[in-house]
């Protein structure tokens, strides 16, 4: 069985900005291990001779021409914003990279 520790879950939860209780961390550690095992069965079907793929359909080079098209108005763009000011989205100050 795959080993998913409680710390792994806590780390993932932090990266995903999900608040989890101690009990939830314990529970999820066990459940995630089962999920990983379930997904692992795929690797039994696909041997080393099957190339890794990221898309189910063999498509490549889907491009658009460099032509300006549709834009929203600032009012439309901001219509779903929880908060806005001076035609811009207003967000809490977050201490991180600029």
């Amino acid at each position: 069985m795959a080993e998913i520790t409680r710390d792994d879950v806590a780390h993932l939860a932090q990266l995903a900005r999900i608040e989890m209780s101690e009990a939830e961390l314990d529970k999820m550690a066990g459940e995630l291990a089962h999920i990983v095992d379930a997904v692992k069965s795929v690797s039994e079907a696909a041997g080393p001779d099957v190339p890794a793929t990221s898309h189910p359909i063999p498509l490549s080079n889907v491009f658009r021409e460099d032509v300006v098209g549709h834009v929203l108005t600032p009012a439309e763009a901001l219509s779903g914003a929880p908060d806005a000011d001076e035609d811009r989205f207003r967000v809490p100050a977050i201490l991180d990279e600029e």
Partner: peptide, 17 residues
């Protein structure tokens, strides 16, 4: 996206979905 790539325009005028 097909929104314009222009510098210095008014805020949020060169955006789409």
């Amino acid at each position: 996206s097909s929104a314009p790539n222009v510098f210095g325009d008014d805020p949020n005028t060169n955006v789409n979905e």
